[in-house]
Amino acid sequence: MKIAFTTSGDGPDAPLDSRFGRAPKFLVYDLDGDAWQMLDNAQNLGAAQGAGIQAAETVVRAGARAVVTGHCGPKAFRVLAAAGVTVYNSAAPTVATALADFRAGRLAPARGADVEGHWA
């Protein structure tokens, strides 16, 4: 199973980004292979609106079944839910800590968006 983490850095020790749609990058971690890959979300940073939708499309296409991020807005949540991707909110400082929390079952699935839609 693959999990997408929002981040501004380039590996597991990088900070977990609190934003979903406007996170600079995604780290997609494959629990089965214990391997990870980086996905760029830069083209989304300047979107006036719909950034969450495009980001959701990106992680769904990458095959992620879960997203771990700080906050998730309503449009992105709708798209992720429709694609069967579970969202987990986390305030962990780094991707690695968030991953450890996930493995240990310390993260609960979000039941909805936890922030308002943003344009910027």
């Binding site: 406007r22 940073l45 300047g46 979107a47 006036a48 609106q49 344009w119 910027a120």
Partner: peptide, 12 residues
């Protein structure tokens, strides 16, 4: 057009 998008870039 696309002034909203430009605003988003400037603010970001």
């Amino acid at each position: 057009e696309n002034s909203g998008k430009l605003v988003s870039i400037v603010r970001g």
